[in-house]
Structure formats: structure tokens, C-alpha cells
């Protein structure tokens, strides 16, 4: 079994993967500020999946990684308005009790995992045809 990678080194690995675009091409992510030595505040982007109301829309998502990340999940909040069962309609916060990846979080998951799963969830039966706010509106 692998030994636990400390928070900061784990986040630097994620940053490097994000900077080099090594993951899923439909999502991207990076630090909010290039000099945030605490590595806490991140922004991700999701390109809406084809075949539903989210097709070709761009969604901006904010992450906050606390001191116990990755043992504890980050806080996840949509900046771009979206109508989706797992997202609080008033403030864009992704509700861990309605979103499996956050509710059953393990330290193997990454911010990329969250973005990829959010994108999948956009095309779930419950979400695929929901009426959406105007494109580009923010909370």
C-alpha cells in the first residue's frame, strides 16, 4: 500500500497535472492565485456534455481545499449558474448528500474526479432536461 502523501505535495501534483493538461480534456483546473502558498483556493472549468441542455456551455466551479484535504473533501461551489439536482439553487454549493463523490469521499479522489463526475451528472436522467438559467449568469 502507498504511504500517505502530505496535503501540499498532493496538491502540487494535482497542480502539475492541471497545468500540463494531462487529464480529461473536457475539464480544467488551477490555483486562483499563482502565489497562494497555502494551495487552498482553486478554480475549475467544465465544458457541458453533448446531448442535453448543457451542451457547449462553460461552467466555472470554485474549490476550497482545507487543511485536512485530501482526507476530507474540498468545498465545491458553482460560480456559473446551473440548475442541477446536486447544486443549491441559491448559492451554487454542491450538496455532498446529493452528490456521491463528495458524500462518499476517499482520499484517492481529486479535484479532476469531481469535475469529471459533475460533468457526467449533468447528463443524468434527473438533470438532462431541466430548464437552465441564461448562459453565463453567475451566483
Amino acid at each position: 500500500m502507498q504511504s500517505a502523501v502530505p496535503r501540499n505535495f498532493r496538491l502540487l501534483d494535482e497542480l502539475e497535472k492541471g497545468e500540463h493538461g494531462l487529464g480529461d480534456p473536457n475539464v480544467s483546473y488551477g490555483l486562483d492565485r499563482g502565489d497562494d502558498i497555502t494551495l487552498s483556493s482553486w478554480t475549475g472549468m467544465i465544458i457541458g456534455p453533448p446531448g442535453g441542455v448543457h451542451e457547449n456551455r462553460m461552467y466555472q466551479v470554485r474549490f476550497h481545499c482545507g487543511p485536512n484535504y485530501p482526507q476530507e473533501a474540498p468545498q465545491v461551489q458553482f460560480i456559473t449558474k446551473i440548475n442541477m439536482s446536486s447544486v443549491n439553487p441559491h448559492n451554487g454549493i454542491v450538496d455532498p448528500s446529493n452528490f456521491r463523490i463528495l458524500g462518499n469521499w476517499t482520499s484517492q479522489y481529486t479535484m479532476e474526479t469531481i469535475l469529471v463526475e459533475l460533468r457526467k451528472d449533468m447528463n443524468s436522467g434527473a438533470n438532462k432536461r431541466l430548464a437552465q438559467p441564461n448562459e453565463g449568469e453567475t451566483y
Binding site: 501540499n8 502540487l12 497542480l15 490555483l31 499563482g34 502565489d35 497562494d36 502558498i37 494551495l39
Partner: peptide, 15 residues
């Protein structure tokens, strides 16, 4: 990595 900010050409803004 550095946790203290340092002005040095071989260290970036994240240390």
C-alpha cells in the same frame, strides 16, 4: 518546497 516567501531566481512563487 519553501513555505517561506523568498526572492530567488530558482524558486517560484509557490516555493
Amino acid at each position: 518546497r519553501f513555505l517561506t516567501k523568498i526572492y530567488h531566481p530558482n524558486v517560484d512563487r509557490l516555493g
